[in-house]
C-alpha cells in the first residue's frame, strides 16, 4: 500500500462525512417545504433523505475507517448480512405486534 494513497483516502472520507453532516444540519434547520410536505409510505421525503444520508455515512465509516472493505468477502458478508436481515425483521415484528394490540395503525 502506498503511503500517500491510504492517508489521502482517509481524509477524502473525512470530507465526505463532513459535507454530508453539514447537509443534514442545514436540512434539519431549514426543513424545506417540498421535502416535509411530500410523503412516501407515510414518511416525509425529508426523513427519507436523512435516513439515506445516514446510511451513506455508515457505509463510508464501516468500509474505510473500519477497513471492512479490505477484509475477505466472507467476513464482509457475515457482518453485513445479519444487519440487513435482522434489523428489518425487528422493525417488522414491532410494527405488526403493535398494530395487533391497536397501539398503532
Amino acid at each position: 500500500m502506498a503511503e500517500g494513497n491510504s492517508t489521502r483516502k482517509i481524509w477524502i472520507v473525512f470530507w465526505i462525512l463532513f459535507v454530508l453532516t453539514t447537509i443534514e444540519v442545514f436540512l434539519g434547520i431549514f426543513k424545506p417545504d417540498f421535502l416535509t410536505d411530500n410523503l412516501i409510505i407515510g414518511v416525509s421525503l425529508l426523513n427519507h433523505t436523512f435516513i439515506f444520508l445516514t446510511l451513506l455515512k455508515a457505509y463510508y465509516i464501516v468500509m474505510t475507517f473500519m477497513h471492512l472493505g479490505d477484509e475477505k468477502r466472507s467476513l464482509k458478508i457475515s457482518i453485513i448480512a445479519p444487519m440487513f436481515v435482522l434489523i428489518p425483521y425487528l422493525l417488522f415484528i414491532l410494527l405488526v405486534e403493535a398494530s395487533f394490540h391497536g397501539a398503532i395503525g
Binding site: E24, G28, N47, V62
Partner: peptide, 16 residues
C-alpha cells in the same frame, strides 16, 4: 469507530 457509527444514527433519529 463503532461508537462514532452509533452516534451517526442517534444524531439522525433523535435530533433530525
Amino acid at each position: 469507530h463503532f461508537v462514532d457509527l452509533v452516534w451517526v444514527f442517534v444524531f439522525t433519529f433523535f435530533y433530525l
